[in-house]
Design a protein around this nucleic acid. Structure first.
Lengths: 211, 211
DNA sequence: CCAGAAGTAAACAGATCGGTCTACTCTCTC
DNA sequence: GAGAGAGTAGACCGATCTGTTTACTTCTGG
């Protein structure tokens, strides 16, 4: 059996296409914040430059196009999430159940201060129609990777029904992110974590203690 | 006790602000399709006019602004979803369990040919940052209404843990829509429905038969 | 028969979009 | 000390954006 998904190396394709000079760093930070908060199409390159304290020429010298800034934004966010998650997985008890719950813990903490508007990949997908867009594989890649991660963990818990278990975990996880981002109810990711815990406990009823 | 959420009258505020002349109808249909497929900010009024076979003057005579077209698009989609869902609820066996599953059935059928890119409200939310935007209450209103619907049904199933049960159902439902829209795995809403079924069956393990 | 509503066709306006370009400065490093 | 790389400042380009306007047509109800 090969490596686990979460042990494999990070994101999609090339590690870093852009020379991250200080100005490029500030620009990408500003772009990321603006893209996430206001949406990709709603943010112009002039605004990014102004917010970053950088000229448009520098922007285009470093990134070449707005599309490339978008790609870097999503690729970097993807990398950071995987790295953030890896820390939680490493710190968790070495049982598959604890590791599954560590994913939900990571999401809760990540969402609390970096994902107030829901999943950046889901939100970007809403604005990117063309499957040929260079950012597309980053978006779908992260979701596929999360499913693979849950599947690996589920296989250690119940090999005979790993796929179904993993898919249920994906539903709870994505549902938690949406409910969090749209403020459907408070602490949605705690709810998702508790549901996952009851799910893994098995036998007992799933939605036991009304949170 | 008052009426059930799904028995209450439809959407938010005024029933219809716009005189739906034939040209306005074509325009709103075209706008809805384009907004959903390509994103709101990516679609200009010239494109809407061209696709609808309508002049820009007519667009502005009827709707007054692009923002208002967006509002009408979301309000109408919300109304149609609630009406679509009401049909499934009316056709379902009069037990709360059957009604919950009817919601997932409705979502599966709705998503199959009208929601290939996920929930329109979630996608619109990704593009609308300002909570003061007139479309905002439509988006959050639909999510709150769905939670209320699940809560009403959950109360008939298990009054002592209705809130937790309803929230779990929301997670599965929203998760199913996201997984469907991003093609995380096939037939995500069937998975969500089956998970809901196992959840309502209680006692047994949730992710039993790996779908 | 005619008034008004609904529509077409197309030019127009000002702002903003993504992107380019020139000219100059600063700071390293060989 | 010369050249290269990274940066600022800001003008500029054509395209596109939302929105407006003028002039004319077509249909319908009293």
């Amino acid at each position: 059996m090969g490596k686990k998904a979460y042990e494999k190396e990070g994101a999609v394709a090339a590690p870093r296409r852009i020379a991250m000079t200080p100005a490029a760093r500030r620009a990408l930070d500003a772009a990321g914040r603006l893209f996430y908060e206001r949406g990709i199409h709603a943010v112009g390159v002039d605004l990014i430059a102004a917010e970053a304290g950088v000229t448009k020429k520098t922007l285009y010298d470093r990134f070449g196009s707005k599309e490339q800034i978008v790609v870097e934004y999503l690729a970097e966010r993807d990398e950071r999430w995987r790295s953030f998650l890896a820390g939680y997985l490493a710190a968790a008890a070495p049982t598959p159940r604890a590791r599954v719950l560590a994913v939900f813990d990571a999401s809760r903490d990540w969402a609390a201060d970096r994902s107030e508007k829901g999943c950046a990949m889901v939100n970007a997908h809403a604005e990117i129609s063309d499957a040929a867009h260079p950012a597309y594989p980053i978006i779908t890649g992260q979701k596929a990777w999360m499913l693979a991660l849950f599947t690996d963990l589920a296989r250690e818990i119940a090999p005979d029904r790993a796929e179904g278990l993993a898919r249920t975990l994906v539903l709870l996880h994505e549902g938690g992110l949406v409910a969090h981002g749209l403020h459907v109810f408070p602490e949605a990711l705690d709810q998702a974590r508790d549901d996952a815990e009851r799910l893994l406990a098995g036998g007992t009823e799933l939605a036991g203690s009304g949170r």
